[in-house]
């Protein structure tokens, strides 16, 4: 499909009415079994158009399998799913034009250069050759791969592969983008870049469905989070709601001079708008944080007030703690084999 030929005046019939078209994804009772074992065991999802929906869970929880069913990469054993009102099982060809998929493992061609990869995928989307070439150059520049355009992927770093992979998913600017653990194994800097890109996509009007093992990542990006464990949805809500269930991040401070404890307490009260727990005898303060990055603001305010800090730490509720709270059992040990099985 050529993007320029998009007819913006055309209105699909039945767009308004049921309100179902407002949902990017509507899935009911999704089931997938591998050899008698239920990898996905009756998952319901309602994902509103726009924004980021996070699917959080440990390895082998069924996140990837769910995503692959929605992306027409796996047959849906039971249940049904619609994307923008289109049935996934009945009209896979239409679904494939609406969804861009970026997997856990970069799905680009090792034997081709970055430029050739994007051209190939553009052509397979039905874009004319000259336009596919132009799009490839634009995307490579936008993803900071312009200099590596003519290198074969075998020479790419992990971060570069991920970026190219995402670029390949965006050739037709799909309205729904699936990102399967997009930052697993990336260094913090590259992870930050990926997050910025995801926010940019949402600003463009895309809906993003993101799976992640990191509570922090879901917290940073997602408007709504579903927690999945053993193929079932165990919790769903906004990050705030889930965190409330799990418990807040807390800021721990030790001051250089104990007599400043009271003044420091005042500063924290002003910045965070809540009362810290003071232990003046050990020059220690503790305060819950709504977001981990508020810690920086507290530190800046303390410095401005001339209060010296001897040590600082931010304790976050870990995924393990989240799981313990939400499921009543700790997250299973990392099991890479089950993830591999999920892929097949």
């Amino acid at each position: 499909m050529s993007i320029t030929s998009m007819d913006t005046t055309r209105r699909p019939s039945g767009r308004s009415g049921t309100g179902g078209a407002e949902l990017a994804v509507h899935a009911e009772g999704l089931v997938k079994s591998f050899g008698g074992q239920r990898a996905v065991d009756g998952i319901d999802l309602e994902i509103r158009t726009g924004g980021v929906f996070g699917v959080l869970g440990p390895n082998g929880a069924g996140k990837t399998t769910t995503l692959r069913m929605l992306a027409t990469l796996l047959r849906i054993d039971a249940g049904r799913a619609e994307i923008f009102g289109v049935d996934v099982a009945r009209q896979p060809h239409v679904i494939r034009q609406l969804v861009g998929v970026t997997g856990q493992y970069a799905s680009v061609d090792e034997n081709l250069t970055a430029r050739e990869n994007l051209w190939l995928f553009g052509r397979l989307h039905g874009i004319r050759s000259a336009r596919a070439k132009k799009l490839a150059v634009e995307l490579l520049d936008r993803f900071g791969l312009g200099d590596a355009a003519d290198k074969t992927i075998a020479k790419f770093s992990g971060g570069m592969r991920r970026r190219l992979d995402l670029a390949a998913s965006l050739i037709t600017t799909p309205p729904l983008i699936f990102l399967d653990e997009p930052t697993t194994g990336l260094d913090p800097h590259t992870r930050g870049q990926m997050w910025d890109t995801i926010r940019g996509l949402v600003a463009d009007g895309c809906t993003v469905l993101l799976t992640t093992q990191y509570l922090d990542e879901a917290d940073q990006l997602a408007d709504q989070i579903a927690v999945i464990d053993h193929g079932r949805k165990v919790a769903e809500g906004t990050p705030e709601e889930l965190k409330a269930a799990v418990g807040d991040t807390s800021l721990q401070l030790v001051l250089a001079e104990p007599e400043q404890t009271g003044a420091a307490g005042d500063v924290i009260r002003r910045v965070l708008g809540l009362d810290p727990i003071l232990s003046p005898e050990r020059s220690r303060l503790q305060a819950p944080l709504k977001q981990a990055d508020l810690a920086a603001e507290v530190l800046v305010a303390l410095r401005d007030a001339g209060i010296r800090v001897a040590s600082v730490s931010v304790d976050q509720p870990s995924l393990d703690e989240a799981f313990l709270t939400l499921t009543g059992h700790p997250a299973e040990p990392q099991d890479d084999e089950s993830t591999k099985e999920e892929r097949r």
Partner: peptide, 24 residues
């Protein structure tokens, strides 16, 4: 933090995409 557009085109409209999608 400023959010920069990734696609650099007009906003993506799902309903138009569904309508424009080829059926076969």
């Amino acid at each position: 933090m400023s959010v920069t557009s990734v696609l650099g085109e007009q906003r993506v409209r799902p309903a138009d995409r569904v309508a424009a999608a080829r059926r076969r």
